[in-house]
Amino acid sequence: MAAVNRPEQLIESVIAIATEAGQKIKAIFHQGDFEQTIKLDSTPVTSADLAAHQVICERLMSLTPDIPVLSEEDAEIPLSIRESWQRYWLVDPLDGTGEFIAGSNDFSVLIALVDNHQPVLGVVYVPMTQECYFASLGNGAYKRSQGEDFPIHCRSGYEQNESALKLAVSRRQDPNTVLNMFNKKQDYELVRLGGAALKSCLVAEGQADCYIRIGPTGEWDTAAAQVIIKEAGGQVMTTDLQPLTYNRRETLENPNFIVVGQSTRNWKDLLKAAS
């Protein structure tokens, strides 16, 4: 059993778990022969999601037997039980199932440790590139690539005289869905990528200034990336600029949210929804 008084001590163990799950996903992806069904919430699930779920839950329960695990693939746990959890693991075994089905590489494994309604440790592992983003509260954000760890930081600032605000958007999304959220006409550069967590990580490593998500997501979609964003100098908020919290409601569905790299910018003035 691992000690959890200092979440940063768990980082390497959690990265190893995410990597093992990612290897299973990658093997199924390359085989191309996976089962696919539609869940009650009308979202797809594949045999890769379920294989990763099984690995992650088994390994986390072995690592920290006293900490419950809440996974997207086993989320029917009522608030009456969850509200007694001060600390728990929050997992999306395969973020970007639609990308996986479409044959895109833009999917990831997400594992977060939530303490007192806020994520304090986050790992985002990308199976197809074997890259990993990770952070723990108060210890900075990092990207592991080709065996080396690099500190990552949000873009130092979008200034008014710069040519464009860099917006991370989905490969398959009409960009007007996002552009219509803004009050003022200005130049935008669209940075396209699949997977909610991966677009958040673009902001964390300074490749985009902002990511706005309009439409349903679960708390498991944001927790791991939220720690990384925060430690990289940014913020994750609802589109009316309130902080995201976890495990406070019966529903585990997030409101629409915005990921920003320059937390000092006047986003309230820029966004219609915040006016």
Rank of each mutant, 00 (worst) to 15 (best):
E189Q: 15
A197Q: 09
K143W: 06
D92I: 00
H153D: 07
P93Q: 01
L198W: 01
G157E: 02
D92L: 01
C201V: 03
A204Q: 01
F134G: 08
F150C: 13
R171S: 05
L70C: 05
R172H: 10
S108R: 00
K166E: 11
G98R: 02
L121A: 08
C132P: 12
Q160R: 12
I111G: 07
A204K: 00
L137Q: 15
G103Q: 05
Q146P: 08
L94Q: 02
E131H: 10
L179H: 08
N180M: 10
C154I: 03
G98H: 01
G157Y: 02
P65S: 03
E189M: 14
A164N: 06
V69H: 07
I81L: 15
D74C: 09
D95K: 01
V191W: 08
G103C: 07
A112H: 06
N139P: 03
D66K: 04
F182M: 09
Y88V: 07
D115F: 08
R82W: 11
Y158A: 08
R155H: 15
N139V: 04
A164M: 08
A75E: 13
E162V: 05
L110I: 05
L70S: 04
G194F: 02
A168F: 07
N180H: 12
V123E: 02
C132R: 12
D115H: 11
L90T: 08
V123M: 06
L190Y: 10
P65K: 05
S156I: 11
D92P: 01
I81T: 15
E148K: 15
D149M: 15
G103L: 09
Q118C: 09
R82L: 13
Y133T: 04
V69Y: 09
E76S: 14
D174R: 12
P78K: 08
E72Q: 04
G96M: 00
N183D: 10
H153N: 12
C132M: 12
Q173G: 06
E205P: 00
E162N: 14
M128Q: 13
H153A: 12
A168R: 07
T177K: 13
Q186V: 02
H117S: 13
L165K: 04
L193A: 07
Y125S: 04
R172Q: 05
F150W: 13
G147I: 10
D66P: 00
E73D: 02
L202M: 14
V109M: 11
M181P: 02
R172P: 01
L179V: 04
I77C: 02
E148Q: 15
P127G: 10
G138P: 03
E159S: 13
R87L: 14
F150S: 14
Y125G: 03
N105R: 14
V124C: 05
V169D: 01
I111E: 11
D187Y: 11
G96E: 00
G98I: 00
L137P: 06
D174E: 13
P127T: 10
K143H: 08
E73C: 00
G122H: 12
I67F: 08
S200N: 13
I152T: 03
S108H: 01
L198C: 01
E76T: 14
M128I: 10
P175A: 07
P78S: 09
D92T: 00
G157S: 07
L110Q: 08
P119Y: 10
G195D: 00
C132A: 14
S136K: 03
E131M: 05
H153V: 07
L198K: 01
V91E: 06
R82K: 10
N180W: 05
